[in-house]
Nucleic acid binder design. Structure first.
Lengths: 349, 349
DNA sequence: TAGTAAAATGTAATCGATTGCACTAAAGTA
DNA sequence: TACTTTAGTGCAATCGATTACATTTTACTA
């Protein structure tokens, strides 16, 4: 239990026969200390292997140098990557990252936020759960004066900054790409439209159709969850339609994969009969024998930028509640699942 | 800035005209408080929405209810899943999980541990980085009286508990399975043998050969990293050998996938010409058109058990430095990449 | 050399909760 | 009634660092 042996400024002050206040000032580079004492203190501090007690500091200052990250699941590639980005940006400047998962459940979300606030974190990064509707627990964070930053999945709450990708553009890019491949009856597998991200992707899909003068057919639009089975079921339903589809744009890579597996099972040729594009650029999309076209959300970058927004925000904290909305550009990764052999050249990455 | 409005025991004591000490005792269910005062305090605390200041408590007690997790990369599926397990087990009992990544670099590992100790975490969970040789930074954790628990990748340090899987058995299971499929010239793609996990898998491989009276051929054993290219290069080299191999057991799913892609490129039939088994049961292994046989490491369970070991350890902390070594059983998941059509029945899952 | 400004250091309160010790008041005993 | 227990509270120190304010020391000016 060397815990008890921890060296404090009092140990230094005793050894040098000066007051603890002076030691503190010396260690904090105050200009109100003579060069001689300064050197002496620093030397002794090093000798005794002094380490500032962050707890005492936190109690005094109210700041802990800890930030919280609240996500639905931490072992989903996307969220884990965002967290990595946050961690890489904040660790070098002395912050620690505390992670919490909500399991897509508002109750957990509320509880996690409550305990985070009670732990006096200096900021919260969060991607709301699917079941989140009411935002009063989010407002309570702001009431506490704790900066909150949404990433990817956000809610519209005044005073809250956010870092997202342009999901509308993502939806547009993917759909437009499919159209460029010659597809005309493009189905869309949407996610829970309660979440802005899925709504925007859907709207991007619609816009791409509109721009290309392709009529919208509501029968081609199905809501799925991010499970393979869900995508498979949708594909089955779609292929049963009298007028055959020739492409699928899925808001989820998992649903896209499920759809592909189901289509193959039904002897449907991919990409020539049906082209498929997913969303998220999950690692597996590029590993498949038939790699899947997808939209990359640059999650690590998203985390890094969210961290930067946080750092800016606490720097100019003087009640300047300027909310910042950063929107990243999604990247289309064209792969075999949508590269039609009839098309000579595919657009560049 | 409602931060300042935080209700303290002094607010309660003032309101009730009693001392803060009594309030504290009442809130902590001390038996030295009258029922009347107790009720009064609890009622007032609820009214004022009192929340215990964890920082003050931490300063006083030296315990923070935070634990640290140190892993090479947090967005690798395996580590993210272990963290999830730890989080799910510890959050309900009031702990917070702080995560750090080392990028497989000892320097970072040392630095992260140093700052974690300085933050007064109550315990550390860790998977050592590949470059870790010296263990003095680990001993310094013990010197500080902070419980340390290794998971998956461990070093032999007296007093440190660990939760791992039986990698030897994993290596044996996979290799034995390949042999059962009729394979006789089985190559092994090993990882960095500096890490115990890869060494054990290798030894399991050797043992399976020995038990089945298959001679070891050193030409069939190659060291790779966990990259696709590395596996592909190894496959190329192996297939160039005069006496053809008929199976590959890879310590890494990524290398296995790379090998499979390379073999296909060379028109080698899988699994009938060459059967392949990987290790880790990465999500993608089951998503492939040709799903890959692999060994599951039950990472979430591993995290949960590590958390339980930690909780036990701090409960009976009275210097009873009993180290606990939990070894989990790996699970072989047989998939198409190793199911030979010549074999009638495959062993059950 | 006295007088004053400037520099260096010390004192003590503060951040909230806990806890050993001391004290009061109520209850029990003879 | 006098005396001992004991239940119930309060006081004040403690955890370690910071900082406004007070005080001392040094340097400088006339």
């Amino acid at each position: 239990m060397r815990q008890k042996d921890k060296v404090t400024i009092y140990d230094i002050s005793k050894k040098l026969n000066i007051s603890a206040a002076t030691v503190s000032r010396a260690l904090n580079n105050s200009d109100r200390v003579s060069q001689k004492t300064l050197d002496l203190v620093l030397k002794t501090a090093k000798e005794l292997n002094y380490q500032q007690n962050t707890l005492a500091l936190a109690l005094k200052s109210g700041r802990t140098n800890n930030v919280g990250v609240v996500v639905p699941y931490i072992n989903h590639n996307f969220f884990a990557s965002v967290i990595r980005g946050i961690e890489e940006e904040l660790t070098p400047v002395g912050y620690h990252v505390i992670i919490c998962q909500t399991h897509e459940n508002v109750e957990n979300e509320i509880r996690q936020i409550q305990t985070l606030l009670n732990t006096h974190i200096d900021g919260i990064f969060m991607s709301v759960s699917k079941s989140t509707q009411d935002t009063s627990h989010i407002k309570s964070v702001l009431d506490d004066g704790v900066p909150l930053i949404f990433f990817d999945r956000k809610k519209d709450v005044p005073g809250v900054s956010s870092v997202t990708i342009n999901d509308f553009q993502g939806g547009f890019l993917a759909t437009d790409h499919l159209i460029k491949q010659g597809c005309k009856r493009i189905a869309h597998l949407s996610g829970d439209l309660n979440l802005e991200i899925y709504l925007k992707r859907y709207e991007g899909y619609l816009e791409a159709l509109r721009v290309n003068n392709i009529p919208v057919d509501d029968n081609l639009i199905l809501e799925v969850n991010s499970k393979l089975e869900s995508g498979a079921a949708a594909a089955k339903k779609l292929w049963a339609l009298p007028k055959k589809i020739d492409a699928i744009f899925s808001s989820s890579d998992y649903a896209a994969l499920g759809a592909i597996q189901q289509l193959k099972l039904m002897q449907v040729g991919i990409p020539d009969e049906v082209s498929v594009a997913g969303f998220s650029n999950e690692p597996f999309t590029q590993y498949m024998e038939l790699p899947i076209t997808s939209i990359d959300q640059t999650p690590v970058l998203m985390g890094k930028i969210a961290a930067q927004v946080f750092l800016e925000q606490i720097k100019e904290k003087r009640e300047m509640t300027v909310e910042k909305k950063v929107v990243l550009t999604p990247e289309l990764h064209v792969r075999d699942s949508s590269k039609r052999s009839t098309v000579k050249s595919n657009q560049p990455l």
